[in-house]
């Protein structure tokens, strides 16, 4: 698993990358009440704003970590955005992206480096 400075986690599943936010990020955001996801089939570029997370406090954006096509979004988040707080690394995933350039993953941190960032 890789991590971005924006506190996303990225997990490679064959030709897809699953994206969510870390436990640290979900704790910092507080109770999440709404998640606006991209549409399946959207083509996105690295650093596009693809997700909006609304917590009880404020709205924040999530950036696309890679160039590619959104192949699947997590349908559970529409009715149960709190899943992001409850299980950020599992049931609270956001979307899957079919990457076009896996070398973009090299820019991101491994778990040890990420833990150092948030410590």
């Amino acid at each position: 698993m890789k991590f971005t400075e924006e506190h996303e986690w990225l997990r490679i599943e064959d030709d897809l990358v699953v994206v969510g936010i870390t436990e640290h990020a979900s704790t910092q955001l507080g109770d999440i009440v709404f998640v606006e996801l991209p549409d399946e089939g959207d083509t996105v570029s690295k650093d596009d704003e693809v997700v909006v997370i609304e917590s009880v406090k404020a709205a924040s954006d999530i950036l696309a970590p890679l160039d590619g096509e959104i192949t699947e979004i997590n349908p559970a988040l529409e009715d149960e955005p709190a899943k992001v707080n409850e299980d950020p690394l599992g049931a609270g995933w956001f979307f899957k992206i079919r990457h076009s350039d896996l070398s973009q993953m090299d820019d991101y941190m491994d778990e040890a480096a990420y833990n150092k960032l948030i410590s």
Binding site: V33, F34, E36, E54, A58, A59, E78, P81
Partner: peptide, 11 residues
């Protein structure tokens, strides 16, 4: 009072 019909908060 304003009650958004969807789930997105309006701040």
């Amino acid at each position: 009072g304003l009650r958004p019909q969807g789930r997105a908060p309006m701040r």
